[in-house]
Design a protein around this nucleic acid. Structure first.
Lengths: 175, 175
DNA sequence: CTGCACATGTAAACGGTTACATGATTGA
DNA sequence: TCAATCATGTAACCGTTTACATGTGCAG
């Protein structure tokens, strides 16, 4: 059925309940953002494409002169979503500037190495704090997925912080 | 000094020793690939740009009619690299299709959830095996960075596998 | 003599972000 | 009345991947 990455996110979101493009952006910003982001520049054109292919259906819900189009997933759309979920495909891409700096920092001396690790630790600490703010929101969801995924986000950042601290300690001992 | 992402990788690699575009690709495939990939389509044009800006210098080392241009980093290039390493910037992007599936799987039922987690676990297990193959290569490096970064990659995948297994167990108990 | 590793490069397509443009409604 | 939020959309740009094109040198 061939869904684009953003198309998958949209179908997945709409499978739960109908939403407008604006709603989709708001929801993904509070949930999938940490492992799969989406911007308006992708969402609106993709809504049109999915609609053209009959995977979703828009209905006008404007209030007065305030425009609003709410999209719902179609039978065809659910089929496409299920098809994607059924494939074992597992794209996994990481772009971690902290690791890149660490990789090259050795050439700059020990201080650069420890600085890189400390900055990485702090970045993960900020991310952790952000996720904790979302926590109550995700746990209120009646479904199983979101809470687990948020839990992964928390655990991942905790892991990274721990790793940074252990590595700093180890490097400290070695010198 | 304003370096592009691929420019940083190239400068970092060349700071250790001079290399050709082909060498850079081969090295990054065995090292930074897991957290910062680079393809020929980026490397060759970027080498030209960095050279135009005086951050690197190419010298012809063709053997007979077999072309080969080896680039070395310049003083200016080292300055630019140090400048980048000195900024606290920490781009961190994750695209994890397994988590995305897990997030949406609940709507498909419990089997879809456990299937998504199992597939994620298997994907991390493959990644772990790949990294273990590289291990001897990274540890032979005289510098500090690479071994630490590889260690992170191993630890990260081990963490993810553990998380998947614990979550499977917990979900199993709950039903 | 064949296949693999070495080696360089370009073009097209893709996916995504950012900035911009526009305007309505609501609550403080 | 002013700021925040709701709401939709486009255009320009950026970085990246993929596929293609081309050819050399060496080892088995």
């Amino acid at each position: 059925m061939d869904l684009s990455p953003t198309g998958r996110v949209i179908l997945g979101v709409l499978a739960v309940e109908p939403r407008s493009g604006y709603d989709i952006k708001a929801l993904t910003d509070k949930s999938t953002r940490f492992f799969w982001a989406a911007s308006y520049g992708q969402i609106y054109p993709e809504l049109k494409r999915l609609s053209d292919r009959g995977l979703i259906e828009g209905s006008d819900e404007s209030h007065g002169s305030r425009k609003r189009t709410v999209y719902r997933i179609t039978r065809e759309g659910r089929k496409a979503l299920a098809e994607w979920l059924g494939t074992p495909e597992q794209v996994h891409e990481l772009r971690d500037e902290g690791l890149l700096k660490l990789f090259f920092a050795a050439a700059q001396g020990n201080d650069a190495v420890t600085a890189a690790i400390r900055e990485k630790r702090d970045a993960h600490a900020s991310a952790l704090a952000e996720l904790r703010e979302i926590e109550p929101y995700a746990q209120s969801a009646e479904r199983v997925g979101p809470a687990e995924v948020l839990g992964y986000g928390l655990a991942y950042n905790e892991f990274a912080i721990r790793w940074c601290e252990e590595t700093l300690e180890r490097l400290n001992k070695e010198n």
